[in-house]
Design a protein around this nucleic acid. Structure first.
Lengths: 151, 151
DNA sequence: ATTTATTATTTGATATATCAAATATATAAA
DNA sequence: TTTATATATTTGATATATCAAATAATAAAT
């Protein structure tokens, strides 16, 4: 019999990301009620890379395009961002952080920074880097193996 | 300005688990159409630890109890498992893998085994263990910091 | 210049997740 | 023994995710 799911590295990965998300979500909602962690992170990205399309954002966050559409909608409803159709390519939308969105960012950024520090407390740069490299290898394997198995 | 979400270890963790899930989900559905990765993993756990309550299963998989109730329901509808109220403690349910569930397991286990091997190809036991230890430290931090911030 | 193909986004149907409140049973306390 | 408290599960409301198909605009091919 093969090992139980709970004994694998995949389980540990899942546990780590869910713990972090639950933690971060809680702290962020504390600062800005009703906001989700993903909305805060997307807001950061839009602010820093205003030229990204919805597709780009979807890929960055590993989300379905439909999902992004609805997330963007909900962020517009909350007045965090605006959306206008790009005049050079009318299929695209230009997404822009509003004043309200900037206010939210101002409140949320220090929380995010603190969250990161708290969760990584006691971990050396080296071990974080190593863990990242290992995870990246797994991602690479996924990409390669999908292709191999398909052919 | 603090680092972009995409530059953090958290992002790499998320990317790794999502890649793995997408990969595994695809392979498993190939063998048993309509099944989800989580259903397959829960089936494995129930088979190996028949005494777990729904709450136990929920905690193991980091899922809301409501979520587990509905997942169990859906697995019953698919004839993978049965549920009977425990006669010693009538609040609890005893969950049992059906013949159909065992058939599914038989088809799915080799796939899961292969998935793991493929995704971990080229990674040493040592580095997997180290990465796991790092992730576990993060989980511990989450647990500790939640308590500290609450008090 | 039309047709065809590609790209970006949206919509609908359905599944899954999450929160709060409700139910049902068991245990502890008065 | 009744009342209160805790535990296990369920339900309803709502949010989010996912797949397939639809729409709309651009780019490529004939």
């Amino acid at each position: 019999m093969i090992g139980l799911p709970t004994d694998t590295i995949f389980y540990k990965i899942e546990k780590a990301i869910k713990s972090y998300r639950k933690f971060a979500q809680k702290q962020i909602q504390n600062a800005v009620p009703g906001i989700t962690l993903d909305q805060a992170l997307v807001l950061m990205i839009i602010k820093n890379k205003p030229d990204l399309t919805q597709m780009d954002i979807g890929q960055l966050f590993f989300k379905d395009y439909a999902s992004i559409t609805r997330m963007i909608d909900s962020m517009i409803k909350k007045d965090y961002i605006t959306k206008t159709t790009d005049q050079n390519d009318r299929r695209r939308s230009n997404i822009c952080v509003t004043d309200m969105g900037n206010e939210v960012l101002k409140m949320v950024l220090p929380i995010i920074e603190r969250n990161r520090a708290l969760i990584l407390e006691g971990l050396s740069d080296r071990e974080i880097e190593d863990a990242g490299a290992t995870l990246t290898k797994m991602v690479t394997n996924c990409e390669e193996k999908v292709v191999e198995l398909a052919s």
